[in-house]
């Protein structure tokens, strides 16, 4: 058991990831207003919240804002915890622009903004900035994940899709290290390790591709786009499938080990170059690239980090465990009594 602690650690980390990653609510937001264009005069619309807790006892404060102009709502009626009806009077002097809708729920400690909620079609050149009646606001300390436009709940896939690629890269690195050693003396033993690492790595590549495609369908609307990350993933999968084809076409174990190791090293080096070149070739739809409403490793939310890093470690440990099992079975099948 003492030598197996890391397997238990991997499972515990994944358990933590599933529990916290799936149960943590998203931060409350306004997701929708039932109008996209408002004109001067009295205006009334309904704002749809997600995860909000509006209360009739103390309706939230609502105001419109667009580059320096601010307009407070005349009346806010709470319809239910998720919906409010907003009434306001747009003055003639309001400048025509995209406006953001701000909602401040002081009772629940929730501050929300719906960016570019609608087009306010004023005719004037701007109004004096108003200050809405302020009340003491203390933000709620609830543990939530950010609710970003388009991503919404799928932000949780961060813990089940991205670590697949990390795990695959770890296994391919293990494989390349064994390939280097397979070129030395006693190469056959390391060759078995190299090929088994690749095989398990390909399982994770397949998982990464499939989960990525489902996620892409829900956020970008297509199963596949010509995106550097996706093309890179497809190429890596092709390279390692080619590696297996190469192994399959050589019968002599010694020669097979050497050829496979040479190809593995060559392919790994070119793959690293590919990863450096590829993202610079074009704009990307992928999260964190090309102004997409998402995250990069740098602006990952602190709460997401608390689950994401354990997820990466947990999946890596699971991958290593799978590699360990396969390798032991392979060694067993080769040692003929």
């Amino acid at each position: 058991m003492r030598r197996n602690w890391w397997k238990a650690l991997g499972v515990l980390l994944l358990l933590y990831v599933v529990l916290i990653g799936l149960r943590t609510p998203l931060a409350p937001t306004i997701v929708h207003v039932d109008t996209d264009r408002i004109t001067p005069g009295p205006v009334r619309f309904i704002a749809q919240g997600y995860g909000t807790a509006f209360s009739t006892e103390q309706p939230p404060m609502v105001w419109l804002e667009n580059s320096g102009q601010r307009l407070c709502a005349a009346e806010v009626t709470v319809l239910d915890p998720l919906r409010i009806r907003v009434e306001l009077e747009i003055p003639e002097g309001f400048r025509s622009e995209l406006s953001h809708l701000h909602v401040l729920d002081t009772r629940a400690g929730q501050s929300m903004v719906l960016h570019e909620a609608f087009w306010t079609g004023g005719r004037g050149s701007g109004i004096q900035e108003a200050t809405c009646p302020a009340t003491a606001f203390s933000p709620s300390a609830a543990f939530t994940f950010p609710n970003r436009a388009i991503l919404n709940e799928t932000i949780r896939n961060l813990f089940f899709h991205v670590p697949m690629w990390f795990t695959m890269m770890l296994l391919m690195t293990i494989s390349v290290v064994h390939s280097v050693r397979a070129l030395g003396a006693g190469g056959l033993r390391h060759d078995v390790a190299a090929v088994n690492a690749v095989r398990v790595g390909l399982v994770f590549a397949a998982l990464g591709l499939v989960t990525g495609m489902v996620w892409a369908r829900a956020t970008w609307g297509t199963w596949w786009t010509s995106d550097p990350q996706l093309n890179g993933a497809a190429t890596v999968t092709l390279i390692y499938l080619a590696y297996l084809v190469l192994r399959g076409s050589v019968a002599d174990p010694g020669r097979r080990a050497r050829l496979a190791a040479v190809y593995n090293l060559f392919a790994f080096a070119l793959m690293l170059v590919f990863f450096m070149v590829l993202p610079r070739l074009s704009d990307s739809l992928h999260p964190g690239k090309g102004g997409n409403p998402a995250f990069s490793t740098y602006d990952l939310d602190d709460h997401l980090r608390l689950v994401f890093y354990p997820a990466v470690l947990g999946w890596m440990l699971l991958g290593t465990w799978m590699f360990n099992l396969r390798l032991r079975a392979a060694r067993l099948s080769e040692s003929r009594p």
């Binding site: 190429t235 092709l238 076409s249 050589v250 060559f266 392919a267 070119l270 170059v273 070149v277 590829l278």
Partner: peptide, 24 residues
């Protein structure tokens, strides 16, 4: 050539590796 198979294997092995070159 060392693997002893024809151009088919070369295409399978080489194609993913020339991709970065081809794209740039």
């Amino acid at each position: 050539a060392r693997a002893g198979s024809g151009t088919g294997l070369m295409a399978v092995l080489g194609f993913p590796l020339v991709l970065p070159l081809l794209l740039s």
